[in-house]
């Protein structure tokens, strides 16, 4: 854990995770980027679009026997709606993501795709196919030949169920990358026959790969939930 003072308002800003490099000041909404020796404000984050999520920064839960605490959020929009990517600080120091979309939940960890040549090849093929598809104008229709195809990541065979252009609508808490409004990615959702979840996020053609599982609300046993009017 590392504490810094917000360069804008001076309030204490905590980085709970060692890989967090970006945080939004809870007092003045400054977006703070952490460098080796100092911190820098890169502007102010507007308030996030409202939602009815029961989760919030500070919510704690479990996933496959591992404790997690939500320490950051990315609100992502696409042409047909929006979803939340909650950044998790886990017991053993791992950083995970809890995706909350259309009322379902998936928890995943980023994998190092460069260490596996076959995964790397599969990703390269996917990126190439996607670029070709994009030039043909398929992407915004979330269709095209890639949808429904399979990709092998590590040992898992996963189906491409969704390809969409995503844009950051806002962020809060701390995150492992800077996430100002308007940050654009291509997000590819994958699912396996055993409830496995995967996501490939392309930022400027460079992939980040996340693998995990869909989880049921009750499995997580969440505590410290957000107050919701009427519920």
């Amino acid at each position: 854990m590392k504490k810094v003072n917000c360069p804008s308002c001076g309030a204490e800003v905590t980085f709970q995770s060692g890989i967090s490099v970006y945080a939004v000041c809870a007092y003045c909404r400054s977006m703070i980027v952490r460098h080796d020796v100092d911190v820098e404000s890169i502007g102010t984050m507007a308030s996030l679009p409202e939602d009815m999520s029961p989760l919030q920064i500070g919510t704690e839960g479990h996933c496959q026997g591992q404790f997690f605490r939500i320490i950051g959020r990315l609100k992502v929009g696409w042409v047909d709606g929006a979803w939340n990517e909650w950044f998790l600080y886990m017991d053993d120091g791992l950083e995970g993501w809890l995706a909350e979309a259309q009322g379902s939940y998936a928890i995943s960890l980023e994998i190092d795709h460069r260490s596996n040549p076959e995964t790397e090849q599969a990703l390269n093929r996917l990126v190439a196919a996607l670029e070709k598809q994009e030039t043909n104008g398929f992407l915004d229709a979330t269709s095209g030949p890639l949808l429904g195809s399979y990709i092998t990541l590590g040992t898992q065979q996963l189906k491409v169920v969704d390809i969409k252009r995503a844009v950051c609508l806002g962020s809060e808490g701390e995150l492992p990358f800077a996430a100002p409004r308007g940050r654009q990615t291509i997000s590819i959702d994958l699912s396996g026959s055993g409830g496995e979840f995967g996501c490939i996020e392309l930022l400027d053609g460079k992939p980040r790969v996340y693998l995990g599982n869909y989880v049921e609300w009750d499995e997580m046993g969440c505590k410290n939930l957000r107050a919701l009017e009427g519920w």
């Binding site: 001076g10 309030a11 809870a26 409202e50 029961p54 957000r226 919701l228 009427g230």
Partner: peptide
């Protein structure tokens, strides 16, 4: 800073 950060609106 010891004061808690501004409260976030509850979901409604």
């Amino acid at each position: 800073v010891t004061a808690p950060p501004p409260e976030k609106p509850k979901g409604k």
